[in-house]
Write a protein that binds this DNA or RNA. Structure first.
Length: 259
DNA sequence: ATGTCGCATTCCATGCGA
């Protein structure tokens, strides 16, 4: 089973890219983030016509997550529990068939948190704590579970071309990295780091200042695996070439194989 | 640090979020 995650930075601007990637990569499921539209404006028909099932959780103007899958997504949850007043569309979860069993999959768009001296940063940290609480509950099911998405977390210095430039950024501040480690310590395996210790593996290059041309990237798109999923982990890859496509998203897809 | 996008509105220019 192949699972991918991709922050597309507007599904309406990136529809042809998504269709091309689906055709090229042939995933069983693709988690999307930053749809930047309400469900009614999601280009559902075009993707369904290509043979896919579409589950969306959109929001006007920004945020928004979706899961595109070959099989219908079941037991769907929209929104991260733990704060009824939170209306931001950043979490979508469901269950897909996998062999004789199932895999539970979530598409996550974790808050950016910048600038850190505003209410945006405590919102990010609180969101991460809510995710940890929910994830702990999911782990109790002892089933294959994949939490995939744009975490807006640079886990370590080797995950940035120029870590010093990110020292005061909400993506790299110590409380952010500590919260990410705490989430993992519940029992998750971070897919890419289960397969390589290499530096220089990035999933995001800013539109500004020629970041792509200079390979000035960061690794912020991650897949966290429950023990039952980690036991089945095969290859992990970053579809870096997608960043070179015309009018590309600033993020590229990350893929895993589950045997 | 800021050489770019995409969205929305006060709507063809600007603010916001990233």
């Amino acid at each position: 089973m192949r699972i991918a995650t991709w922050n597309v930075n507007s599904i309406r601007q990136r529809l042809t890219h998504v269709l091309a990637f689906l055709k090229e990569a042939e995933p069983d499921a693709l988690c999307l983030q930053e749809l930047k539209c309400v469900d009614a404006d999601f280009p559902r028909a075009e993707i369904e016509e290509a043979g896919w099932q579409v589950t969306t959780h959109g929001q006007k103007g920004f945020n928004g997550v979706a899961i595109i899958s070959r099989s219908a997504l079941e037991d769907v949850r929209r929104g991260l529990p733990g704060d009824e007043s939170d209306e931001q569309a950043r979490y979508l979860e469901g269950v897909l068939p996998h062999g004789d069993g199932v895999v539970r999959l979530a598409s996550i768009y974790l808050p950016n948190g910048n600038p850190p001296n505003t209410e945006k940063y405590p919102y990010k940290l609180a969101w991460m704590e809510r995710l940890a609480v929910h994830a702990k509950g999911l782990l109790a099911h002892e089933e294959p579970l994949v939490l995939a998405g744009d975490y807006n977390v640079i886990p370590e210095p080797r995950d940035a071309r120029d870590p010093a430039a990110w020292a005061g950024d909400a993506l790299f501040l110590p409380p952010t990295r500590t919260a990410f480690r705490k989430l993992q310590s519940l029992g998750f395996t971070e897919a890419l780091r289960a397969t390589t210790d290499a530096a220089g593996l990035y999933t995001f290059w800013d539109y500004q200042a020629g970041a792509w041309q200079r390979n000035n990237g960061i690794r912020i798109d991650h897949l966290l695996l429950s023990p039952q999923a980690a036991d089945r982990l095969g290859a992990v890859s970053i579809a870096k070439h997608v960043r070179g496509w015309d009018k590309a998203s600033d993020h590229v897809p990350v893929l895993i194989e589950l045997n």
